[in-house]
């Protein structure tokens, strides 16, 4: 059974000028131990999907329809009190900015201890010992001495390591990592991703890795979901999606990655911008920017259609041999 199943999830924001559909019938699943990459432009709904899963949509946002199932149990209608034992214990989360996700006035050791003792029955001594263990696992040097240190005494990269330890220390089955490396130095990003990958593999944790960095996805993820304007444009095994994109949007994303092997004069770019949620065009949301647009695309919205191992929401998929 899949660890997490998201089934036709719709998230809406009721507002003055009508209700905005921020997520429109998103469906995907994550298997135990799997890393699912979620890519897309800013505002495509990547982070919102994570927030909806963990039950922390900012009001007035709400799950309007669809289901979220964790190990077969529906959690999308859970109250806050029902979600609390799930948060941290079964679904962990890592945010973008390690500088602000740690409480500045509480030592890192104490934050780890607090997280563990909230979910696991541990004595103070055991929890403290485990906290040191976790700091060692995430590669903090002299962990035993630094366990009492405060966040401001750590560098950005070190803090993100602490945040990773915090997300994993109650041994959740799934970790939602929302752009975990965006705020970090380029030189540290690869280290953090490698660390995350290693620890989650060791502990058999599934990861939903939200990012807009296709390179990170290609290296880390088992499968990838490409999001566009609140919908999934394409989802499939990372190799197939990267090497043989089916959706023109995915193809465009791939074309925008600089590559060392092929020298190209200019990176290809996708013309135009993603539509605002208030002005999503009829038919396929990508049709105004699409190079392969058909008449049908302007009126008829495609559902996810299978091609080989991938699913893509497109009437006119990129032919297999068309990819460079």
């Amino acid at each position: 059974m899949a660890l997490l199943e998201v089934d036709r999830l719709v998230v809406e924001f009721p507002g003055r000028r009508g209700t905005l559909r921020a997520l429109d019938e998103i469906s995907f699943s994550i298997e135990p131990g799997e890393v699912l990459g979620v890519v897309g432009e800013s505002g495509a709904g990547k982070s919102l999907t994570g927030a909806a899963i963990i039950g922390l949509l900012e009001p007035p946002g709400r799950v309007a329809s669809g289901q979220i199932r964790l190990e077969g149990t529906r959690i999308d209608r859970f109250t806050d009190a029902q979600m609390r034992p799930i948060r941290g214990r079964r679904i962990g989360a890592i945010f973008q900015d390690p500088l602000t996700t740690l409480d500045p006035l509480v030592s890192v050791g104490k934050q780890l201890v607090e997280t563990m003792q909230t979910h696991l029955k541990l004595s103070d001594r055991d929890a403290r010992a485990r906290a040191v263990g976790w700091l060692e696992q995430v590669g903090i040097p002299a962990a035993a001495e630094r366990v009492g240190a405060y966040p401001h005494q750590f560098s950005g990269g070190m803090r993100q390591r602490v945040v990773i330890a915090l997300a994993l220390c109650a041994e959740p089955k799934l970790v939602i990592a929302d752009e975990p490396t965006t705020a970090l130095d380029v030189s540290i990003q690869a280290q953090i991703i490698a660390l995350l990958r290693r620890l989650t593999t060791d502990h058999g944790t599934s990861v939903m890795l939200v990012t807009h960095d296709m390179g990170v996805i290609a290296e880390t993820a088992d499968r990838v979901a490409v999001m566009y304007a609140g919908r999934i444009a394409e989802i499939g095994p990372v190799r197939d999606v990267v090497l043989h994109p089916s959706h023109p949007y995915t193809e465009g994303l791939m074309g925008s990655i600089p590559q060392l092997e092929h020298r190209v004069e200019r990176l290809r770019q996708i013309d135009g911008a993603m539509p605002r949620l208030t002005a999503i065009p009829p038919g396929c949301a990508f049709n105004p920017r699409c190079g392969r647009v058909l008449e049908r695309c302007r009126v008829d919205r495609p559902d996810l259609l299978a091609r080989g191992t991938t699913l893509a929401a497109c009437w006119n998929m990129v032919p297999m041999d068309d990819v460079t």
Binding site: I54, P85, A93, D103, V106, E114, A167
Partner: peptide, 25 residues
């Protein structure tokens, strides 16, 4: 602040978040 969101994400109750994380700050 993100650390309050993070505290929610690790499953702390509102009372706990208010007293141990927000109050000192």
């Amino acid at each position: 602040r993100d650390y309050v969101m993070a505290a929610k994400v690790i499953g702390l109750s509102s009372g706990r978040i208010m007293l141990t994380h927000i109050l000192p700050n």
